[in-house]
């Protein structure tokens, strides 16, 4: 195996790991997948390391020469279909070998796969918000108006993400919009209280899952990932609460609420 071939295999492993990490897969899944792919292509001595913001891989060839590669992860979202697809890909590569070029094309195709379109996700967010108003003990009016607030919030957040405002600002504005919506519905007497409505709409943004995963990582021994996910969750919730809190403060002062 020459340098070029090893470089290609490392590249495939990194790309597979990157897709899993960027789309909400677990840390150990990223590391394991990278090692499996290397061994499927005939590299036996391989070590990989992943945190939510980067992945590193290092291999030794039969002559004792060391090769490594680092990839920075800038985008973190959740797209579980891609995680599933890469998982199937690595399973397939282990069982019946393919050429590196084919593997790379397949990974590129997985990364290009489209998610649900904007209107479907907005509808899903709307239905989800309505469902959450009932989970939190809301009444019929909250169920109805939560539908609109949740859908509109999703549209706003998608738009802000598209112009790449950065996750902190997007979440702060999302929090502000949810608080404003809840306050307006209450002000016009459509719902008894803003809290359940605003909270239900914000369920699509709050990092409860990220925080739970942070503790899970830490307990599983991935300490660095635990810390970074924990900080991620804290900064998201700070953004949401400062947006919502600031809006409510302004409304209380000038809106007569």
């Amino acid at each position: 195996m020459n340098r070029y071939e090893i470089g290609e295999i490392i590249d495939i492993a990194c790309r597979a790991g990157k897709i899993i990490l960027e789309n909400g897969g677990e840390i150990y899944r990223v590391e394991d997948t990278m090692r499996y792919i290397c061994s499927a292509f005939g590299i036996d001595e391989c070590d990989s390391y992943a945190t939510p913001t980067m992945i590193v891989i290092s291999v030794i060839d039969t002559k004792g020469e060391v090769f490594s590669r680092m990839m920075r992860i800038r985008h973190r979202g959740v797209n579980l279909h891609k995680v599933e697809a890469v998982n199937n890909f690595s399973r397939a590569v282990i069982n019946n070998p393919i050429t590196p070029a084919e593997a790379r094309a397949e990974l590129a195709a997985i990364d290009q796969r489209s998610a649900y379109n904007l209107w479907t996700t907005a509808l899903a967010a709307a239905v989800g918000t309505s469902a959450f108003t009932l989970v939190f003990g809301g009444g019929f009016s909250e169920f109805i108006f939560g539908f609109f607030l949740g859908g509109l919030l999703r549209l706003l957040v998608t738009l802000l993400n598209q112009v790449q405002l950065g996750y902190f600002t997007v979440n702060a504005m999302g929090g502000a919009a949810a608080a404003l919506g809840g306050w307006l519905f209450t002000y016009f007497g459509l719902i008894p209280d803003w809290w359940i409505m605003t909270l239900s709409a914000l369920m699509q943004l709050v990092p409860g899952l990220i925080f739970t995963n942070a503790l899970r990582d830490a307990a599983a021994g991935d300490l660095v990932s635990g810390i970074s996910r924990g900080i991620e969750a804290l900064s998201i919730v700070t953004a949401l609460a400062s947006g919502a809190g600031g809006t409510l403060l302004l409304l209380a002062r000038f809106g007569g609420g």
């Binding site: 909270l199 925080f211 919730v237 609460a241 919502a244």
Partner: peptide, 15 residues
């Protein structure tokens, strides 16, 4: 897990 994780409580903590 989303319906049971304490995302809302985290939000009210900072608020």
């Amino acid at each position: 897990l989303i319906p049971i994780v304490p995302g809302g409580r985290m939000f009210s903590f900072v608020l």
